[in-house]
Structure formats: structure tokens, C-alpha cells
Amino acid sequence: MSTMYEVLPGPEHFLPPAAASMGIRLPDPGQAHIHGKIVNEDEAMEAAARQFLSAKVPTIFPGPLVLWAWNEKAAKKATAIRHLYETIKESVTPSQQAMLIPMPDYRPKYPKINPEIEINPNHPNLTIWHNKIDACMFVGVHCHQANLSLKIIRGGTYCYTIAMCAQAGHEDAMVSFRDATADKIMRLADWVKKLKGSVEPPKD
């Protein structure tokens, strides 16, 4: 299906359309998508790594599927995510600030969340605004909650979103991978390392 719609950083508007409703489709195994265009996975790896390296505040948002050691697979992914975070931190300039902020809960939090230390899918924009996050990656977040967050972020912020999805991917992310494994996350870290120094850091 051809489409003119592109999934781009917002703010799009208060209620952006679901990308799927605009004709964006999910990648097949071995593929990914960039702005809604299906590409091979390596191309998307490079694009995601470039985003991390060129952002002022590149951030990873791990969700409950990787925050808790449900099983060996989850624990391995957590290790890989930590490695990716450390790699980004080592690869950016001192003016950039890499962050690792958890999404421990999907339930709305009262009286309020602390946006400095966590993100909540019902109002992810608060954490993004507070920390001035301009590129982020969701990993280990259940699909429905990731979709909700990605749409809100596209609607109300200028943040560039990447989804490292363990299922079929997310139309509403600007870059989306599918079938995420610990190895795939490590491969992304390798791309960050490989591109270190070759990407222009953000201008103040």
C-alpha cells in the first residue's frame, strides 16, 4: 500500500492520527521501518544510532518486561539495554546527556509521577518535557502502552521516537524494529560505537 504519510517528530497536534490509519504498515521479519517506510534492519540500526549520537538528551525507556527479571531472556535483555546505555554515554560529547529512565508502571500515578526518575504511558510528555528529551527508545513495554505513549509523544513533543519491539513493531514510532532480542540490542550498541565521532553533535 503506498502512502504519503510520514511518521515524523511532532508536535503534530493534540490528537494525532494513528499511523496505521494513515496507511503505515508494520515491517516483516528482518525488516524495520523509518518514518513509516519499510527498510532493511541494518538501515534502521544506522538511523537509530545516528539519532542517539545527534540528540542532546538521548534516552532509553525500559518497560516492565525488561525491568523485572521474569526469566533468563528478560534478564539478558536488561543486560543488553544497560550495555547500550553505557555505549551511548561513552559515545556522546560532554554537552550531551544520555539517560536511562524506567517505565515501571502503566497505572496512572497519583498524586503525580516524578518525571525526573520515571515515565508513565498515560502522560509520557511530562517526562520528556521535564528532561528536554529529544530522542528516545522504548523497549520492554507492552504493545498497547507503547502505542499510547508513542502517539502522545508525537502529538505533544518534538521528541524522536524509536521502538525496539519484541513483537511486530510499532507504526507510531519514527523508527521501529521488530522481534527484539538481547543480540539485536547489542547490535544497535555496536552501531553506536561504530558511528562514534562521525555524527555531528547537536548545536546549542
Binding site: V66, A69, A78, R82, P104
Partner: peptide
Amino acid sequence: RIKIAAEMFEIMPSEYQ
């Protein structure tokens, strides 16, 4: 059964720890 992944423990908000 209620265990935080070791690499993620320090970033979890204190109520979960």
C-alpha cells in the same frame, strides 16, 4: 518471583525497590 533485573535496580523508583 518479584525480582528486579540486576542492571535496572538502581534506576527503579524507590517504592519498587
